[in-house]
Amino acid sequence: MAVGDKPAPPAERLNGQAYARPSRLRAILIGNRFHTGFVRLSVIYILLIVLAFLFLLPFYWMVNTALKPANQVFTLPPTWIPQPAMWSNFYTALTTTTYESAPPVYHYAINTIIITVNGVAATLFSSSLVAYAFARLEFPGKDVIFLGILSTLMIPFAVVMVPQFIIWRHLNWLDTLWPLMIPHWFGSAWNIFLLRQFFMTIPREYDEAAFLDGASRWHIFIRIVLPLSKPALAAVAVFAFVFFWNDFLGPLIILSTPENFTLTIFLANFSVAYRGTPWNLYMAAALIIILPCLILFFFSQNAFLKGITVTDIKG
């Protein structure tokens, strides 16, 4: 980008003629701070292309298989482009029920959507509430509590899994969606941290002015801080979406009857349900299930990137 419009590099000016020629050749091949040399450029792009190829290979293999007619799945060597492309595989994967009273796949999708929507709303609301207090309010024990919140990041789910299971059992809530919805209304450490970092970048004058005008903290939070934090909230929302959509261990432990299953549980059970594995349908189902997250990613890349990088990790 920043090629010609800069003054000559100080190094060359200082070293004068003596080094000019080798350094010019060097600049063409390897490059310097301002030019990317040809050799260097080639190496970079070759590496990028090879790595991108490897990273995309699983997607290609999934799509390729998902579109194959059943008989082509087992041909050797594999068909690299399915002929003809069986778009109906997606329909089949979604609608086939393996036995009479098995719920159709959209049923699992509904459960997943309920859990995800609730999860996103709950995370946004509760985490921003808590984050606001840490960003703006003064109270005894603030630092200790904040450290406490951060240190819960270290606690593996396994430690709380069994006791939580026992709690839900006593409430008779196992095999319902409640245990997968309610706990998320109490803030999550990572998002609290993320939002607090963002809130702190909002100039204090905005809310102090409102405070002096007699607005309540709640009012300031809802009317001033939240509207100013849309990018951060979007970041939290997309990450929460991906997390809840893909959650596996939680539903695996909580849900028992097929009617309550989520898409990930369905996918993990797929081979069992179909006895033997029609890989084309399996891949079609997998593709459908990851599609919402892929679409979300393509439409909100900035939110994703911000979500990762808004936090001042040096803090």
Binding site: Y99, S101, F165, P258
Partner: peptide, 23 residues
Amino acid sequence: VKIEQIGEFHAKIPALAAAGTLP
């Protein structure tokens, strides 16, 4: 009567018992 398929039978039945959600 609703028939439910229980995949990974050996593993899942005890888990359902522990959950109190056996069919």
